[in-house]
């Protein structure tokens, strides 16, 4: 569903302000965003509002998107890399309704991309803004639950606790046992939670031409990475950071460099691996790339399984 890209001028149909938030709230968020950009990786407190969707479901990202969105923007919303996951569909519909904004599934066409848990595979360009939904913005939270303590650690750049934890992992498991929300150091100063993206995506954070904004609604924090900011995944000389690699290519498009979802295809545990970034996979297939299992039969099967809702027009039967 690639909507036309022409600027939308018709007023939003809801009776709410453009992009839902009132102007005073937008100004408050905008001020926080400017300070976040000026102090890369630092969590700026902001007075997050109660939103009409649940905390933990992207209220921080939604508030950031609402504060930056203009009528000329083209919005893409993904969850787990896909445009069609229900929460991504719901958030996209929210902005269509309240801001009448153009939407797209194409990474390249979007000016603002709101995401949960992934960074698109297609390299982002200058002028694009990536808005991350963040559940727990504090990278030290699982080592020290008290914010009164972790704030001091950030103020002193005292990240010894984090290094000890990562090293304990190596001693115990032979690995840093962190596969997502893998902590990063920003410009040699702040340790930052990159949101629960897989560590596969961590290298994309660094020196990106796009602006990256992070919103945590329930925890009331905003932080940012300006374009071309140096972001380093924490590691040790003898245990360098290694992004996750996949053994097999995508079964549909044959990509060997993308993050894959494991799809269980029968009750005997048969599995296939397909791109988590649905736009990336579709574009590759449109360009003629084919994976091992890209036969039309299989694609149809998966489509039917995923689209669980029957569309036979049967009336909904009331409870007896």
């Amino acid at each position: 569903m690639n909507a036309p890209l022409s600027p939308q001028t018709a007023p939003a149909a809801t009776g709410y302000n453009f992009a839902y938030l009132d102007e005073q709230t937008k100004r408050m968020i905008r001020r926080a965003l400017l300070k976040a950009v000026a102090i890369p990786g630092h969590q700026v407190p902001f007075a997050a509002r109660d939103m009409p969707m649940p905390y933990g479901w992207g209220t921080g990202g939604i508030q950031v998107t609402a504060a930056i969105l203009g009528s000329g923007d083209v919005l893409k919303v993904i969850d787990q890399g896909a445009d069609d996951t229900t929460n991504a569909v719901s958030i996209r519909a929210f902005f269509q309704k309240t801001a009448n904004v153009a939407v797209t599934t194409r990474t390249a066409e979007a000016t603002v991309i709101q995401t949960r848990h992934r960074i698109p595979e297609k390299p982002l360009k200058a002028g694009q803004t990536l808005v991350f939904q963040v559940p727990i913005p504090e990278p030290l939270r699982f080592l020290e639950p008290r914010e009164t303590e972790t704030r001091v650690m950030h103020a002193l750049a005292d990240y010894g606790l984090m290094h000890v934890k990562l090293y304990e992992d190596i001693a115990k498991h032979g690995h840093i046992a962190k596969t997502y929300a893998y902590p990063v150091e920003v410009e040699g100063r702040y340790v930052m939670d990159p949101s629960p993206i897989p560590k596969f995506d961590n290298p994309k954070l660094s020196m990106s031409p796009a602006l990256q904004l992070f919103g945590a609604g329930r925890e009331k924090r905003i932080y940012a990475l300006p374009p071309f900011t140096r972001v380093k995944s924490l590691d040790f000389e003898d245990h360098p950071f290694e992004p996750t690699r996949f053994e097999a290519p995508c079964a549909l498009c044959g990509a060997t460099d993308s993050y894959l979802d494991e799809v269980v295809t029968d009750d005997r545990g048969t599995r296939m691996f397909v791109c988590s970034d649905t736009d990336h996979c579709e574009e590759r297939r449109a360009d003629g790339h084919r994976g091992l299992l890209a036969g039309d039969d299989l694609v149809d099967t998966i489509t039917r399984e995923a689209d669980v809702e029957r569309d036979d027009g049967a009336p909904i039967v009331p409870l007896p």
Binding site: D50, D79, T179, Y180, T244
Partner: peptide, 25 residues
């Protein structure tokens, strides 16, 4: 409780990207 219920219930949102990363590890 509005914050709490949102965050507890958000666990039903898809987490398959992160789960895949944990599976691999």
């Amino acid at each position: 409780n509005v914050q709490a219920t949102g965050f507890v219930e958000h666990l039903k949102l898809p987490h398959y990207v992160d789960f895949q990363a944990e599976l691999a590890l």
